[in-house]
Computed example of a mutant assay.
Amino acid sequence: MAHGSSATAQRCKPLMSALVRLHRSFILLLCKKPPRKEQKEKSWHNSRNDCTQSNADLAIVNSNEELTFLKTRTENADYFVGLTKTSGMWKWIDNTDLDQNIFSITNRDNDCAVVGLSTTGTVPCSVPTRWICEKNA
Rank of each mutant, 00 (worst) to 15 (best):
I105D: 01
L67Y: 00
D50T: 05
N49L: 07
C31W: 01
Q10N: 09
T52S: 15
I105N: 02
C133P: 02
P124G: 11
S5T: 09
A113S: 13
S25F: 04
V127Q: 15
Y79M: 06
C12E: 01
D111K: 06
W92K: 00
Q53L: 11
R11W: 15
T8F: 15
I132Y: 00
T122C: 02
C12R: 03
L22S: 03
E38N: 13
S126G: 13
V81F: 00
S43H: 09
V127H: 11
L58R: 02
M1W: 14
N101W: 05
M16Y: 10
T72C: 00
N46M: 10
L19T: 15
L58G: 05
A59E: 02
N55Y: 08
S104Q: 14
R108P: 00
E41A: 15
V114F: 04
R11T: 11
T52N: 13
M89D: 14
N55S: 08
N64F: 01
Q39C: 06
F103S: 04
R11F: 15
N46Q: 12
L98V: 02
M16H: 11
V20A: 15
K13N: 11
W131R: 09
F80Q: 03
P128D: 06
G4L: 06
D78F: 09
A56R: 14
T52A: 09
I93R: 09
S63F: 01
K135C: 08
Y79R: 08
A77S: 11
H23K: 12
V123G: 03
F103E: 00
Q53W: 08
P35T: 10
M89A: 14
N49C: 00
C125M: 02
S54Q: 08
V127N: 11
D50H: 05
D109I: 09
R21G: 06
T72I: 03
W90N: 01
S17I: 11
L19V: 15
R24W: 02
E66L: 06
D57R: 09
P124Y: 10
K37D: 10
F103I: 03
T129E: 15
T106Y: 05
F26C: 10
S47P: 08
C31D: 04
F80P: 06
P34Q: 12
V81L: 04
T72S: 05
N62I: 05
I60C: 07
T129P: 03
V123S: 10
D57N: 09
H45T: 13
V81P: 01
